[in-house]
């Protein structure tokens, strides 16, 4: 069974918000209708976003590190938002595991947003229905796009390749390999939601150089303390050779 998901590399994310704007641009222009954006350049801006980048400072000054943390729907394998929906508008697709909202069935009761521990759902202020990340379901299967572009808009936009997209149930996929080999983890595993999206942690690349790799232990010149003697009273090669 396929489970499409994102893998977000926190080691690489620079917090540029390109995924945020790209997501908003693609999804507000899509067939599902606009995403609210009130007073975008004015006092009290307010709008619907599927994706946000947050920043956290880890540690205490001066030993701090800034972690940029993109946050969107995690497309849980056991999504708590789906069974609580009274109308069936919130559902998980069998074929690829994407959690979606049917905007034509949603009554805007907000119950699913209460049931999501990650706060991944937003009520659109104008359409009055619940909205969330669709993994660009209107893009990834679009055969009019070249195959290399059949990815979510956020993945296309990321300048540092911090966002990977693929099937986390396929053990040989790029995302599964990254999760396996780079220590990918899930958010709030304590609730058993089994998020499909994974995050790759900060990693330090260090080389361990031993001292004897810098100073050759087997240097023959240092053997048993014998040092090359400079011989001054013997004739040099120049003295004895007529070139």
């Amino acid at each position: 069974m396929t489970q499409l998901a994102l893998v977000i590399d926190l080691n690489v994310c620079v917090g540029c918000h390109a995924c945020v704007t790209s997501c908003k641009q693609w999804n507000t222009s899509g067939p599902a209708g606009f995403m609210s954006d009130d007073n975008p350049y004015d006092k009290d801006p307010n709008g619907t976003f599927f994706n946000r980048v947050q920043s956290f400072e880890i540690g205490e000054f001066p030993k701090t590190e800034t972690v940029h943390f993109p946050k969107s729907c995690l497309h849980c394998e056991d999504p708590p938002c789906v069974p609580v929906c009274p109308t069936g508008a919130s559902y998980k697709r069998e074929e690829d595991g994407i959690v979606l909202v049917d905007y034509d069935k949603c009554i805007g009761c907000k119950y699913c947003s209460w049931a999501c521990p990650y706060g991944a759902r937003e009520l659109d202020e104008h359409q009055k229905v619940m909205k969330k990340c669709t993994l660009c379901v209107d893009r990834i299967y679009d055969e009019s796009l070249p195959e290399s572009e059949r990815k979510p808009a956020c993945v296309m936009a990321c300048p540092t390749d911090a966002r990977l997209f693929g099937d986390v149930h396929d053990p040989d996929s790029q995302v599964s390999t990254a999760i396996r080999e780079e220590g990918g983890y899930q958010l709030m595993p304590e609730w058993g939601t089994k998020p499909a999206n994974h995050y790759l942690p900060r990693r330090k690349t260090r080389i361990k150089i031993h001292e004897d790799e810098l100073i050759r232990a087997d240097n023959p010149l240092k053997k048993e303390g014998v040092k090359p003697r400079t011989v001054v009273d013997e004739p040099t090669l120049d003295d004895v050779t007529s070139w």
Binding site: H17, V20, N39, D44, P45, N46, G47, T48, F49, R52, V53, Q54, S55, F56, E57, I58, G59, E60, T66, V67, F69, K71, S113, G119, R121, E122, L123, Y185, Q186, L187, M188, P189, E190, Y199, P201, R202
Partner: peptide, 23 residues
Amino acid sequence: SAIGVRHSSIDQKTQGMMGGSFN
């Protein structure tokens, strides 16, 4: 557990927007 960083001192610097949201 929310962001998956194992450190006792984590301080949020920005939530990604200033105008507030549904969240």
